[in-house]
């Protein structure tokens, strides 16, 4: 007992005398986690993507090659990448446009008891199962669903039909159109845009906006030159969420949309019965590269200057 406490004392003395040792001990577990579990699996994925599949036997050849990455540029595969990137971009922009006023309202005007109500309202969709939400949307968007019924009741079916007749974004009904996929993505990821934006807007001092108006800036100029740049870190953080979540999702386009594949689904299909792990890995690397590029661009554009 005595020895034990003596030992503990000597340990804490040592740690006190050598604060770096304490930091090292504290940092070790997360470093191990990040290094081995996280980066390790990432490199395993990367390694797979440099192998290739034999054309005839379908056997994976464990020789380093860029052939699999070349496969990504085959028109049908490249389509998938473009389609996913366009969708992720559209969802991100849409979420930013819809989320900004909500976040702004919450940051500026929601006080006292309204604050928790706002958080509740924004977070509530996150509580229910992702699948329930997506399936509910399928019902809303269906040919015989609520939205169609509303259009019919307002005698606006012609408008909806005209919209659905537009190639690429239209389709037989909203639930089997790219627009439907977009709407569901938008709904599901919106909280991930609103919350960081709200946090960053809250940090913008009110006097900044008053100063801008005082100096003669009209409201849209204040938005453009002061509010947006100062809220940009939040917008960027939110867009990282919406963009990467859309890039990786493979459930929503499977339930709502035109059945045309997105990257997540391609990964899923190729690693499944096809057994084309290298191509699946190469596809999985695409979002990583895209996100790295996006962050680099955001940094270059000064998105993190106001941090």
């Amino acid at each position: 007992m005595k020895m034990q406490s003596a030992m503990l004392t000597s340990i804490s003395d040592t740690l006190w005398r050598k604060p770096n040792l304490l930091i090292l001990l504290l940092i070790l577990p997360p470093a191990l986690w990040l290094g081995i579990i996280y980066l390790g699996s990432l490199f395993a994925l990367l390694a797979q993507s440099f192998f290739s599949i034999d054309e005839f036997s379908g056997v994976i050849q464990y020789e380093l090659t860029l052939k699999t990455y070349g496969e990504l540029f085959r028109p049908s595969n490249f389509d998938i990448i473009i389609r996913t990137v366009v969708m992720a971009t559209a969802v991100t922009i849409g979420a930013a446009i819809i989320g900004f006023p909500v976040a702004y309202f919450a940051a500026r005007y929601a006080q006292g008891k309204w604050k928790p109500i706002f958080y509740l309202g924004v977070m509530m969709p996150l509580w229910s199962s992702y699948l329930v939400k997506v399936y509910s949307w399928k019902l809303i968007l269906a040919k015989e669903g609520i939205l169609n019924w509303i259009f019919e009741s307002l005698h606006l079916s012609w408008l909806l039909n005209a919209y659905l007749a537009i190639p690429v974004i239209g389709g037989y009904s909203l639930s089997v159109s790219a627009t439907g996929t977009f709407l569901v993505f938008l709904y599901v990821w919106l909280p991930f845009m609103i919350l960081p934006m709200q946090a960053s807007l809250e940090r913008v001092p009110h006097t900044m906006l008053e100063a801008s108006g005082d100096l003669g800036a009209r409201p849209y100029q204040t938005f453009r030159h002061v509010l947006l740049p100062l809220a940009l870190p939040g917008v960027i953080a939110g867009s990282i969420f919406t963009f990467s979540l859309t890039l990786g999702d493979y459930i929503i386009p499977q339930i709502v949309g035109s059945s045309r594949r997105f990257i997540g689904q391609a990964v899923y299909a190729y690693q499944g019965t096809a057994g084309n792990i290298p191509l699946a890995a190469a596809f999985a690397v695409v979002p990583i590269i895209l996100m790295a590029f996006y962050l680099w661009l955001a940094k270059r554009k000064g998105a993190f200057d106001a941090l």
């Binding site: 599949i53 005839f56 036997s57 379908g58 028109p75 049908s76 595969n77 389509d79 998938i80 389609r83 059945s259 045309r260 594949r261 391609a266 299909a269 190729y270 499944g272 019965t273 096809a274 057994g275 084309n276 191509l279």
Partner: peptide, 17 residues
């Protein structure tokens, strides 16, 4: 034609290729 080609080609067909 082996199965792994069925996979990629069917993806292409659904994608409109």
């Amino acid at each position: 034609v082996p199965y792994y080609r069925w996979v990629s080609d069917y993806i292409a067909v659904i994608g409109g290729r």
